[in-house]
Design a protein around this nucleic acid. Structure first.
Lengths: 360, 360
DNA sequence: ATGCACGATGCTAACGTTCACATGGAAGCG
DNA sequence: CGCTTCCATGTGAACGTTAGCATCGTGCAT
């Protein structure tokens, strides 16, 4: 219960330590410039009173809020959540706080998880929720915005935000908007490594279960897959796009079972891979003896699926840190010229859902 | 790139529409009190200029920041993430923004996911990260704090925060701190329902794989389990506590395999259940024929595990909304007396990892 | 000794908003 | 027709902080 007793201000600290509030301000912002003796006295008063600077006042005066906006999709299940955590930690260390904003309403997310709804809007039209979320963030007075897991529908929001404040995107899309830096995992490469691994295990035909067409990550993985099968000369097919959910992986794999199985199935993420494994198990198809299965993300638990899932691990935490630091650079204005795209390498994790590679 | 051109202020809007800034303020805050004609004129100026109120200034003057702090654990993988999304959405609808703060560093979270580290501190001692995170939140000038997925180590932080601002905990612990409202899912009941279901399938011996001892949810589930086996007169045993990870579920189940299997294994969450399934599969134990397995959370993908996992679904989204609205009530001061604990019922989801219930 | 530079600290103003009160005009009442 | 009443709007001050300049005293060079 707050005793409604006003929080101590600089004036209180100043009165208690017998200096002016300006000196208190200096102790906080440029400690070197104030005499050690005075500094200690002020510091003691700060501790005694439990004084913390009023952020609103500081923000008002400096026109910098020390707030960064985090725009993320509501389906925070696998990587995005970990990335967000890393971002927040790095931000706190740098003296910033993170304003969370989700796009795609909670209702959407729930429905998506529960029954596989929320198909990507094929034409990439922005959803109503996106606009509201983006607008709310810009209006909040954040110093910069970090956009995570962007899909096509978010582009207008990003572009609008970038017009007024710095934006860094965490995405697989090289250039989301002019002047917007992008930090991402090289999804294209991850997908290629999957196919190369499969080829080395003797696989001659692969089916890819893509993610939603309007998601950049899904697109990059699809493209990497197509390029790899091309350069390796193996038969690659692509099903209709899924929606990241296990159910879609299940259904698409059922389609494959009906039309004829390939040597391997490469799902766009681990959840779809789980669905695929389930469908195969139901039909008595053995993994990896009859069909190899690969996922993407290295979700918690992937190692303990049956069989242990070969997948692609992404450095989500590093990604978050990197994105935040890039944003801070832009905020500090040290480097006005955008870096463009920075990519981090993913890591193929070979487990038991694919056959061992032939030792030459 | 920002053209560094100052954002329009009320004064600009006032000048453009030929009124005083006070009138602009009124149009924004009490539109009813201003003459329709004037209001339209001001509104047009607002739209033309793209004016948005300066939050910092408003916060400074009103001493309310319209910010609520969300204190959540970094291991946001299953429920917490969905709860956070629901909270954010509900907050935005109510005109609040959410300041995200995670406890347990990103490094911790990564390590935890990767190798099953981060055992709960048995004695409930607060971790360094918690204090830092909590302090940062209080210092940020948030109007209130929502604590999600609390464990023992967070209590000091909650208590400290509650001394100065309203706090609502999303937790299984009835009273985390004096004056702190608690909104939670009835974990005790969920666990009991699991055991009752198992009993109806003919199970006579059950082993529970508990979560970390310092997590309230884990404790409540354990307690519910113990009470149910007691009242049903079936043999219940409890292993050493796990740490929510698949690995811990795997290892504990290996221990069970060595010492003798029960009829059923009830894991504290789905991840540990995944580990259990894996261990059983490795040893050729059939589920549910030889041993039934139950998880908790109804994680995305649980339905598509092999076999499809019987688990307990929690209304995470509703929980988030409820917690936020409760906090808003406290903030509005309409109801200074704390409600105490509000619990939501979980829902048992019977799938294929347990045998069918006997039809009488 | 006198002046000067410099280091440490204080004072004033301003950021953009809201609150409390003041003002002006139209309507209502006798 | 003069008084009150009320509605719409304007004015002044303040929230807590930081930037800029002013002030004070000390030590050094002349």
């Amino acid at each position: 219960m707050a005793p409604t007793t006003r929080r101590p201000s600089m004036a209180d600290v100043a009165a208690r330590s017998g200096v002016s509030y300006q000196t208190v301000s200096r102790v906080l912002n440029e400690p070197g410039i104030v005499r050690p003796e005075t500094r200690d006295r002020v510091q003691r008063a700060i501790d005694d009173l439990g004084y913390t600077p009023n952020r609103a006042a500081r923000a008002l005066k400096t026109t910098r809020s020390s707030l960064i906006g985090l725009l993320t999709d509501g389906s925070s299940l696998f990587g995005p959540a970990e990335t967000a955590t890393a971002i927040e930690t790095a931000a706190r260390e740098a003296g910033y706080s993170v304003l969370l904003t989700t796009v795609g309403t909670a209702a959407d997310a729930t429905a998506g998880a529960a029954d596989g709804a929320r198909r990507g809007t094929a034409d990439g039209a922005p959803r109503a929720a996106d606009a509201s979320a983006g607008a709310s963030l810009i209006g909040s007075g954040v110093d910069g915005i970090l956009v995570v897991a962007a899909h096509e529908g978010m582009l207008p929001v990003v572009a609008a935000a970038a017009a007024s404040i710095p934006v860094v995107a965490v995405s697989a899309q090289p250039t989301s908007a002019p002047g917007v830096d992008v930090v991402g995992v090289d999804q294209h490469r991850g997908a290629r490594e999957v196919v190369h691994h499969l080829a080395r295990t003797g696989v001659r035909t692969v089916a890819h279960l893509p993610g939603p067409a309007d998601w950049f990550d899904a697109r990059a993985r699809l493209h990497g897959f197509e390029q790899a099968v091309e350069e390796l000369g193996i038969a690659g097919t692509t099903t209709a796009p899924g929606d990241w959910t296990p159910r879609s992986g299940y259904e698409l794999t059922c389609g494959l079972l009906a039309s004829g199985l390939p040597d391997a199935i490469f799902a766009a993420n681990d959840m779809m891979a789980i669905g695929a494994l389930h469908a195969l198990d139901e039909h008595g198809v053995r993994v990896p003896q009859d069909v190899a299965v690969v996922g993407y993300d290295d979700t918690v638990g992937a190692e303990y699926l049956i069989p242990s899932l070969t997948t692609v691990s992404q450095p989500f935490a590093e990604l978050g840190r990197l994105a935040l630091h890039r944003l801070l650079e832009v905020l500090d204005g040290a480097d006005p010229a955008p870096h463009g795209t920075t990519t981090l390498p993913p890591r193929l994790v070979v487990r038991r859902s694919t056959r061992p590679e032939r030792t030459h």
